[in-house]
Design a protein around this nucleic acid. Structure first.
Length: 839
DNA sequence: AGTCACGTCGTTTTT
DNA sequence: CGACGTGACT
């Protein structure tokens, strides 16, 4: 509290008052300070010196270099609290920018818990939603309608397809995705179509891309739509073209905080710089910008993140104060050592070494498995045994991998062993067909000028409006410079569309009716879905189309959407349903997979290392540690492998530092990739770990760890036999293959047989089913309905055969073939038909 | 207009 | 392997 006291005395010294009075004031102040210190105790108490310094920093630019697990969120939230509570800053004048809604939500919550009343006025949100908020207010000044829609990557791709068609570009020569990637990068760099056309090298390919960019942007505008990158780009454009808008936000945001600063791209950098320039009433420039980041955790370069933003912060903001947070509170000493050893192989980083006062802990176990299925089996077994023997819960475990495709083997194994789990990533909830259809209806009802949404649903369910009709309506719309939907209303004047005329008319009147009901206040937005389903016969359409299990899943998803909308509408103070709808559409356009992750439910969680950034788990399995997978094939064969590999290494660093108590890594001798078998070598990142920090297990081949040289293109087909003859400096020292934990009966090397062969060996199958809690509706990101509700060894009831014991479960296609021993005999049946119930 | 069968291509990571 | 797109056929 000396700090506060000194500060207050300092203030007093600058005030001219008589000595006696000053003394009096000092006493007053002393009392005041005591009260204050009481208040501040909880603010500073649990913080170390560096963290306190960061919290107490008030004016001028501040760079907090926060290592993994060093408590940066705590510092950010406490700093906000300090500004409000101690410096009397109005919450309204603070903005905190994050990358995910999850991070924003957590920050909001934590600030609210410290500050209480008023915290809700702090503007805490993602870059993208902040920009939406700003643009909704001012975008009309740069030529867009304020009711713009937001395109997700699927929408962008559809639009690009139209562009390709229009420009007669063969999608075999040039990929939509590739063009979109180039455009995205250009936008990240604030390079518009004109500049791109002018500056990009004028080879044939680039001229085509430039043409696509121009046309793509023209069509976005015609649809009154912005893609993800536009949200940032257009906000910068707005600020550069509309000084009033800029001034408004400059005045408003006296304190700007940015989380994960190392992930910002150039456009975001410029945006921040524009906002951070603030002139106070005395005409002095204050840049109360506080950024937090860690260059070692910069893993989004592929998305345009520019690591220089953080490395050059002090050059851009010359009087910046730099505070380093290097004490890690999360991991054991050994885990941290491992992380430090890996990341030290990178050059071009701000050198720092994280340390911890935590116990040393155990060494990292590195296991070699025969193949990806064995790897999954080994990891899942390990999780089960540690839950049983060490008192962990499922939620204490995370399986982290480089690519989403790797989740599959683990998912199958988790189902097989009846372990509740949750996969983050893969297909986003809002990207599912049925959800996108519903959203498209909502967008059209909302009255958006977006033609993509209309085109998506105009013939879903089938109404007999084919491609030819759509093209003609489109042509009419372009010709008369009206939206696609407006053109539909004029169907009478489009001569070529004869047969579909009635269908189009009834579609339009259906939309109009729904629109009227919404405007009339008869319905909440959730009711609207019911109305749509009924008016369109959508459920029937689903039912005739897909296989039964899929249909059920889709209907469940729609129900989930309805509950999300209900929950959303309940939170809104707004009584106007039409308004609710607009806000809801904004909200869902910007959700990320990770936003749906909650620490609460007791499930094993699976995700990419990218998604795991910012999270922590007691036990982490870093799987697929193989050359070609991690670091990825793409990075090894890139034009600039050195840079790309460094990014992969940072990713590895992020993965390692997610672990609090136990870290386990694994790799496979062979793995199924794209339908054929790949033979990968152990990842170089494992070799970067000092020997005393790891324990090798599984029967890795000789030589596997001693040889880094492999041909650049194909390192598959490494012959295991010839390998074995090579000397092995590494594995032999650690006792090759010898050290399985005794509790683990299912480790690799025993045999790489199918699951039923494994099952017979697994006595622990007969243990009671730990999985009591039934899954509720699949939350966003859950890729499949995970459980059958029973596992091998459980007793189940069949409506006809009575009670029996499950002896085997085999996944076949979308269903499970369950073998059950009934009194009447052993029966094999499909889970979806048998309606088996656990007893 | 809609459906079925075959071929191609892809997997890095995502707001 | 599996998703998706194209093309021919009904």
């Amino acid at each position: 509290m000396n700090f506060t006291m000194n500060k207050l005395s300092g203030i007093l010294e600058n005030v001219t008052i008589s000595d006696s009075k000053q003394h009096f004031y000092l006493l007053e102040m002393q009392y005041f300070t005591e009260v204050l210190s009481h208040l501040m105790n909880d603010l500073l108490d649990k913080l170390n010196d560096m963290q306190q310094q960061a919290v107490l920093h008030d004016t001028g630019p501040l760079l907090i270099l926060a290592g993994a697990g060093s408590g940066k969120t705590r510092v950010l939230t406490h700093r906000i609290a300090y500004l409000i509570r101690e410096l009397g800053v109005s919450p309204y004048q603070i903005i905190a920018l994050t990358f995910t809604n999850k991070a924003a939500g957590e920050m909001k919550e934590r600030v609210a818990s410290i500050v209480g009343e008023g915290a809700e006025s702090v503007w805490v949100s993602t870059f993208h939603s902040s920009c939406v908020r700003i643009l909704r207010r001012f975008i009309d000044t740069i030529g867009y309608d304020r009711a713009f829609t937001i395109y997700d990557s699927d929408d962008s791709k559809s639009l690009m397809k139209e562009v390709f068609k229009y420009l007669n570009i063969d999608s075999k020569q040039l990929k939509e995705k590739a063009v979109l990637a180039v455009i995205s990068h250009a936008k990240d760099e604030l390079v518009g179509p004109e500049v791109y056309a002018k500056d990009a090298p004028s080879d044939a390919i680039n001229r085509k891309i430039a043409a696509c960019y121009t046309e793509y942007q023209r069509r976005l505008k015609a649809n009154n739509a912005l893609d993800f990158d536009d949200l940032i780009f257009k906000t910068v454009e707005l600020f550069q073209n509309n000084p009033d808008a800029l001034e408004y936000y400059r005045r408003r945001f006296r304190y700007i905080m940015v989380d994960e600063y190392q992930d910002t791209n150039h456009a975001q950098f410029v945006l921040i710089k524009l906002l951070a320039h603030h002139v106070n009433d005395e005409g002095e420039i204050e840049k109360n910008l506080c950024v937090v980041g860690d260059d070692d955790q910069s893993i989004y370069r592929f998305r345009g993140a520019d690591i220089r933003n953080i490395l050059d912060f002090e050059d851009v903001y010359p009087n910046a104060v730099v505070i380093r947070l290097e004490q890690n509170y999360r991991s054991t000493g050994n885990i941290l050592d491992a992380a430090n050893n890996v990341i030290h192989n990178n050059i071009g980083r701000k050198d720092k070494t994280l340390w911890t006062a935590n116990p040393t802990g155990e060494v990292t176990e590195v296991t070699c498995y025969e193949n990806d299925n064995d790897e999954a089996a080994g990891v899942v077994s390990d999780i089960i045994s540690r839950c049983d023997n060490e008192g962990y819960s499922y939620k204490d475990f995370a399986i982290l991998y480089r690519t989403n495709a790797q989740s599959r083997a683990f998912e199958e194994r988790l189902i097989y062993r009846n372990v509740p789990y949750r996969i983050i990533g893969g297909q986003n909830f809002y990207q599912r067909k049925e959800i996108k259809d519903m959203i498209a209806y909502l967008k059209v009802i909302d009255g958006s000028l977006d033609s993509l949404a209309v085109k998506r649903i105009i013939n879903v369910p089938r109404r007999g409006i084919g491609l030819a009709s759509i093209d003609r309506i489109d042509a009419y719309a372009t010709e008369h410079d009206i939206s696609f939907y407006e053109a539909m209303k004029n169907i009478e004047f489009i001569p070529q569309v004869a047969r579909a005329k009635a269908a189009v008319n009834s579609f339009v009147s259906m939309i109009e009716v729904l629109r009227g009901k919404l405007a009339g206040g008869e319905y909440s937005i959730a009711d609207l879905i019911d109305e749509i389903l009924e008016a369109t016969g959508y459920i029937d359409y689903l039912s005739e189309d897909d296989e039964p299990s899929k249909v059920e899943e889709r209907i469940e998803n729609i129900n989930e959407l309805i509950s999300k909308m209900t929950a959303w509408a309940d939170e809104q103070e707004d009584e106007d349903a039409a308004h609710d709808l607009k806000n809801f559409l904004d909200e869902i356009a910007l959700v990320a997979d990770i936003d749906g992750y909650s620490e609460d439910s007791d499930v094993v969680v699976l995700m990419t290392i990218h998604s795991a950034k910012g999270l922590e788990f007691p036990n982490v399995y870093l799987v697929g540690m193989e050359e070609g997978l991690f670091p990825s094939y793409m990075s090894i064969n890139a034009d600039n492998p050195a840079d790309e590999i460094e990014e992969e290494r940072r990713l590895c660093y992020v993965g390692i530092t997610r672990a609090m108590q136990h870290l386990k890594m694994s790799y496979c001798k062979q793995r199924m990739m794209r339908g054929d078998i790949q033979f990968n070598k152990v990842s170089r990142f494992i070799k970067e770990l000092p020997r005393n920090l790891i324990k090798m297990s599984g029967n890795q081949h000789s030589g596997r760890l001693s040889d880094t040289s492999f041909s650049s293109k194909s390192y598959s087909f490494e012959n295991p036999r010839s390998d074995r003859s090579r000397p092995d400096s590494y594995a032999s020292r650690s006792g090759s293959g010898g050290s399985y934990p005794a509790s683990n009966t299912e480790l690799p090397g025993i045999r790489s047989g199918g699951s039923s062969a494994d099952a017979s060996k697994l006595s622990d199958f007969l243990r009671s089913n730990p999985y009591a809690e039934k899954h509720k509706l699949p939350p966003a990101g859950l890729s499949a309905v995970a459980d059958l509700g029973f596992g091998i060894g459980d007793t189940v009831r069949h409506y006809k055969f009575g009670e029996g014991v499950v002896t085997d479960i085999v996944k076949g296609g979308k269903d499970y073939e369950v073998t059950v021993n009934f009194p009447v005999g052993t029966k094999k049946m499909l889970a979806s038909f048998a309606k088996l119930e656990k007893v």
